[in-house]
Design a protein around this nucleic acid. Structure first.
Lengths: 234, 234
DNA sequence: TAGATTGTTAATCGATTAACAATC
DNA sequence: TAGATTGTTAATCGATTAACAATC
């Protein structure tokens, strides 16, 4: 009712979360030589159902042709544009432990719209080292570095304890989006975007489903648990 | 209607995904000396609203006391049990690049129900090396290793290209849950649990929201983009 | 025109939330 | 008993899906 004034269309959050998958799928299709694709083929390749795919794409506009399908290159462009990948987003990573180093070298961080431009740590033995072509700077010099170049996305790859303080510093220095790999709850003021990747959460969700596979079997008769089954062999 | 036969309660997927956060929050509260907590305090610490928290907990059972709150230790136990963390889940990691090494050393993988028991790679220069106290084995010897010890959760930390093949081998060898860090779509047969952690997806979702902050400003007048703003200072 | 496939409608399903009765 | 707080109800919201009219 109050929604359709003007401005950019409101795309549902669930759709946004799937656009990256669609984009990657289209890139693979393009590499495979496809110039056009139907929602049916496309959906199969992306691992979703085709009604959902069409509904998702309809939120971006009418980029298909009835009776024909979608032009692969054109759709790649439109999704990239919608996601903001036609801009170049400078990224900083804080925490150069194992994970931070892995992220600094991670290919996806260096392609398609993202550029890692600064690395930070507090440990003297790490500061000054070169990781993936960048010198690790002291986190205390954050503001100095941000004077030289703007940073839009801050990645937190520290342990849990300093994560909130690091996040606060990043936000105070004008970083507008934060991707947090540290376990634990981190909060940001309104207007700052925060996403979280939590490895142990993912494992725990798998454990839950694993246990559910086990439980029904255990009820009728008493069967040995996973822990008890094998474990003897040499 | 057909649901409430017997068997373990069906807990909504959205609730399951929040249980790990609740568990971590409770652990912090316990470390802080709290023995009891109200849903209001608890919700604030976990970063959710208290109605949602109570609803979530009600799916596990009635573990609170009206007028009083929840016993912290008891709730820790109940959530752990629900998530299957009272079992011990053996984990294998495939791919010992930067990310795989980071994961092998990651604390969460070694605590609370999970134990990394095998590391695999195919590169001769990595095989035989010791990472976090474990010797990296050739992936070709997967079945041999699984004879010695069962593995329930397989973690894929390879590049995108071999991910599906690695996944197929894991599943064929009896691995029942897969956590995939490789970009791209990987599919598993029914009955096998699959979760995906995709770093570039997370970045792209941030980029979308970042762009949306920019767009409304650009419409009335013509303003410089982020890329054009700073960038002069030495 | 006939066949194909999109974009949209409407029904269904699941998740969130406020409010409050139950109860410690 | 009075005050506090849970567990549940019911309303609302958003996401999914099947079906099909629009249209190439």
């Amino acid at each position: 009712m109050t929604d359709d004034q003007a401005g950019p269309r409101e795309v549902p959050e669930a759709t946004i979360a799937r656009l990256p998958v669609y984009l990657r799928t289209l890139t693979l299709l393009a590499e495979g030589g496809a110039s056009s694709v139907s929602s049916d083929e496309f959906a199969r390749a992306a691992g979703v159902n085709s009604a959902k795919l069409r509904k998702d794409l309809s939120h971006l506009g009418s980029y298909g042709v009835r009776g024909v399908g979608y032009d692969v290159e054109y759709l790649i462009y439109q999704i990239s544009r919608e996601l903001g990948l036609t801009h170049d987003w400078p990224v900083a990573i804080v925490g150069m432990g194992n994970l931070g180093q892995a992220l600094a070298g991670y290919a996806s961080f260096g392609t398609k719209g993202f550029r890692v431009v600064a690395l930070f740590d507090t440990a003297p033995e790490v500061i000054g080292r070169t990781v993936s072509g960048l010198t690790v700077r002291p986190f205390a010099e954050l503001d100095e570095v941000l004077c030289d170049q703007p940073i839009v996305i801050g990645v937190i790859a520290t342990p849990a304890a300093p994560a909130q303080a690091v996040c606060d510093r990043l936000v105070a220095s004008g970083v507008a989006s934060v991707l947090n790999f540290a376990p634990g709850v981190v909060t940001v003021p309104a207007g700052v975007e925060l996403r979280k990747v939590d490895l142990s959460t993912e494992l725990q969700i798998l454990a839950y489903h694993e246990q559910r596979k086990l439980l029904p079997r255990l009820e009728p008769a008493d069967q040995p648990t996973i822990a008890a089954t094998t474990g003897t062999a040499r």
